[in-house]
Amino acid sequence: MKAGERCAAAREDLFELATGALSGRRRSAVLEHVASCPLCASELAELTAIADGLLSLAPAAEPPVGFEARVAAAWSARAPVARRPRRALWCAAAAGLVALGAIGGWLVSSASTPPPVRTAVLVRANTAVTGTAVVTGAAPARLVMTLSSSRPLGEVRCAVTTRAHRRIVVGSFWMDGPTGAWSATLSVPTDELAAVSVLSSTGAVVASGRLDSAR
């Protein structure tokens, strides 16, 4: 088969490869061709984007009550194997992406030393507010946080506490739904930070958590 014919044959099946419908020998043959043909590989990337996009159109639906608790219970029952922290190479890239705040920047950043990553779990006893804060990069550090709350919180302030017990409000944002995501650039170096907290407009602590050590 000539190169052009191989491409034509592969293109016939590329969308089925993107949707997972292709199997068996045909699938291996197409995968093999794509691995050695940049044109078909870029075609596959575009078709995958279309297929992924269509998948995201599926209407969201709230799972049955107690779903989250059952997930947590199932996880802790199964966790001994999975809980083991693993080195995730792609993480350095993701951390770079957050730190640079630019898609496309991560390829560059992954070539250099991976930035430190620190995470804090944001919780508060007796309230249904939880979240995660991830601090990445050194100078400037970038903070990314997500919050979930069973009730709308309105305006909340995000603060970091330094190792010297100084609390610095880094900004405020609106939580008008059950979940919120927010990020900011910090002027405090990552290694001087101790904790992250979320405050209500009156200054009460809504959720907080200590940052783990740098990885």
């Binding site: 996880w75 957050v98 990553v117 939880t130 995660t132 783990d212």
Partner: peptide, 25 residues
């Protein structure tokens, strides 16, 4: 997208609570 990656990154690093935040999301 960066946030999803940051959360998944925390999960990969062994943070179970990030797992629950991810579930909620």
């Amino acid at each position: 997208r960066a946030l999803d990656e940051a959360l998944l990154c925390s999960i990969a690093l062994g943070d179970e609570r990030a797992g629950l935040a991810f579930v909620r999301r």
